[in-house]
């Protein structure tokens, strides 16, 4: 009789990584949100993390991708695609074949269109649920992940999602570790050729470096001279707020509490 082995199957995590662009120098680098995603995957207990990239392989992109290898990986799966190709079919096929439990991606690419659509397209194509803007993965138990979603204004929301799922990483996720040079040099690329589909629309669009957006002017639409003068000489005024004079502290506090409740800021 063989002893019963009750080992939990390891959580298979695939992180989609891309080539980033330094905002000042414009050089290629590991993309910030993708690196945060790799860090998030690294922090999961007993997870098998796999890196997946679809794109062109040349000198500068290889240097950027080695940045991810330097975070403690021996290899990176690379689906070779020509410049400006639609990487969706290749990625969907690769994910379908390996069927990981969790796919982690950044919110938006730092090069190209950067529309942030890829995770949504993948989720629709694979039929998996998608959770956007993650700050942390709290736990994964019995095929259900408890996630912490980052909201604006530093708030957090707790969500539960059934795996397999696709999640995107917010800038509020923990900062990525430094890329170590040695492992980055030693890491290997496992190159496969995927299906290629051209992105014709992208090729038809005019693309130029971003110019500064015009600052919005304060337009005063006044019918009379008095209104124009008032607008020009206006001080910041709430305009007819409620003033409570001669009230006991309790009454005042009650009025404030009512406003706080109405605005729903008390937790």
């Amino acid at each position: 009789m063989q002893p019963e082995v009750t080992t939990m199957p390891a959580l298979e995590v695939t992180v989609l990584v891309s080539v980033g662009r330094h905002p000042l120098t414009g050089r290629t680098r590991r993309a910030d949100q993708d690196a945060r995603g790799v860090e998030l995957a690294r922090s999961l207990a007993d997870a098998q993390v796999r890196l997946l990239h679809a794109g062109m392989r040349d000198e500068s992109s290889e240097a950027a991708l080695r940045g991810y290898l330097g975070m403690g990986f021996t290899q990176l799966s690379l689906l070779e695609q020509p410049e400006g190709a639609d990487v969706l079919p290749a990625l969907a096929e690769a994910l379908d074949a390996t069927s990981p439990h969790l796919v982690i991606a950044g919110e938006r690419a730092e090069r190209g269109e950067g529309s942030g659509l890829l995770p949504y397209l993948l989720a629709e194509r694979l039929g998996w649920p998608l959770v956007s803007g993650l700050a942390a993965v709290e736990s994964v138990e019995d095929g259900v992940a408890t996630l912490l979603q980052a909201l604006p204004r530093g708030q957090r929301r707790r969500l539960k999602v059934r795996l397999p799922a696709i999640v995107t990483v917010d800038n509020a996720a923990p900062a990525p570790r430094q890329s170590a040079y040695g492992p980055a040099r030693r890491g290997a690329f496992e190159t496969t050729a995927g299906p290629v589909s051209d992105d014709e629309e992208w090729a038809a669009w005019q693309v130029q470096p971003a110019r500064q957006r015009p600052k919005r002017l304060k337009i005063v639409k006044a019918a009379s001279a008095r209104d124009r003068f008032k607008a020009a000489a206006a001080k910041a005024e709430g305009g007819g707020g409620q003033v409570l004079t001669d009230v006991s502290p309790e009454q005042g506090a009650e009025a404030i509490l009512m406003l706080l409740r109405e605005e729903d800021v008390l937790r």
């Binding site: 905002p23 950067g114 005019q206 470096p209």
Partner: peptide
């Protein structure tokens, strides 16, 4: 539209 993390302007 802005593209590539706000570094491109795409006319489309």
């Amino acid at each position: 539209a802005r593209g590539a993390a706000g570094s491109l302007d795409i006319r489309r």
